[in-house]
C-alpha cells in the first residue's frame, strides 16, 4: 500500500489501513521511544499513546509531510511527555567526559587516531551495541538533546520546544553531549585507552 492510499484510509478511519501503519512503522517508533525512555514498558506505552493520538488527530494530517515523519514527531512528543512525568533525578555532571586543557589553552591529552572508519566499525553488531550503550551512559539532559538532534533529526528550534528550553541551551547541550560521547566511544575505536 503506498502513502497516498494510507493517507486516504487513515482519514477515513479504516481499521485495516491503521493496522498496516502499526505494522509498518511500529518497530521504528518503538526503537525511538526506547532510546528516549530507556525502559521497555514506558516505551511500549509511549508508542501506544502515539498511535492513539495519531488516530484521534488523523484529520489534522495534511499529507504535505510523509506519514513516517508525522508519526515520528508524535512518538517523540509522547516519549518526552513520559520522560518529563518521571521523578527528576539530580543532574549528573558531564565535565569528566569533556576534553581537558592546560593553562595555556593546549589540549592536556593527545588523541590517538581510530583504527578504521566508523562506517566500517559500525557494520559490526558489537560496535553498534557499544555506541548505543555509550549514548545511554550520557547524563539525561545531554542524551535527550543528542538523540533528538543527531539521531532523530529534529531542528534546534523543534528540540528546544520539546525539551522546554532555549535554542542556545540546546546548542550547548548538543556540543557537550557529542564531546562526551566521543570520550566514551574513543577507547573502543582507537583500540587503546585515551
Amino acid at each position: 500500500m503506498d502513502d497516498a492510499a494510507l493517507v486516504e484510509g487513515l482519514r477515513a478511519g479504516d481499521g485495516t489501513v491503521f493496522e498496516t501503519l502499526v505494522r509498518t512503522y511500529g518497530g521504528r517508533l518503538l526503537a525511538v521511544a526506547r532510546r528516549v525512555l530507556h525502559n521497555e514498558e514506558d516505551a511500549r506505552d509511549a508508542v501506544q499513546d502515539a498511535f492513539i493520538n495519531a488516530f484521534r488527530h488523523r484529520a489534522s494530517f495534511k499529507g504535505d509531510a510523509l506519514i513516517s515523519t508525522w508519526l515520528h514527531s508524535i512518538v517523540v512528543n509522547s516519549a518526552l511527555m513520559r520522560l518529563r512525568s518521571r521523578t527528576r533525578k539530580a543532574e549528573e555532571p558531564i565535565e569528566d567526559y569533556l576534553p581537558r586543557f592546560l593553562p595555556d589553552g593546549h589540549h592536556a591529552e593527545s588523541f590517538p587516531s581510530w583504527t578504521e572508519p566508523v562506517d566500517q566499525a559500525l557494520s559490526r553488531k558489537e560496535t553498534a551495541r557499544m555506541v548505543r550503550a555509550a549514548i545511554e551512559e550520557l547524563p539525561e539532559t545531554y542524551r535527550t538533546v543528542v538523540l533528538l538532534r543527531d539521531i532523530e533529526g529534529l531542528s534546534t528550534e523543534e528540540t528546544a520546544k520539546i525539551v522546554d528550553t532555549t535554542p542556545n541551551a540546546v546548542k550547548i547541550r548538543l556540543h557537550r553531549g557529542r564531546m562526551a560521547l566521543r570520550t566514551l566511544i574513543a577507547p573502543h575505536l582507537a583500540g587503546v585507552t585515551t
Partner: peptide
Amino acid sequence: YRETIRAGQLACGDEDCSEV
C-alpha cells in the same frame, strides 16, 4: 567529533529495522 555523530546515527539506524 564528526565520526561520533555518524557513529550514533549508524548505531541507532540499525535498531530502527526491528519488528514491532
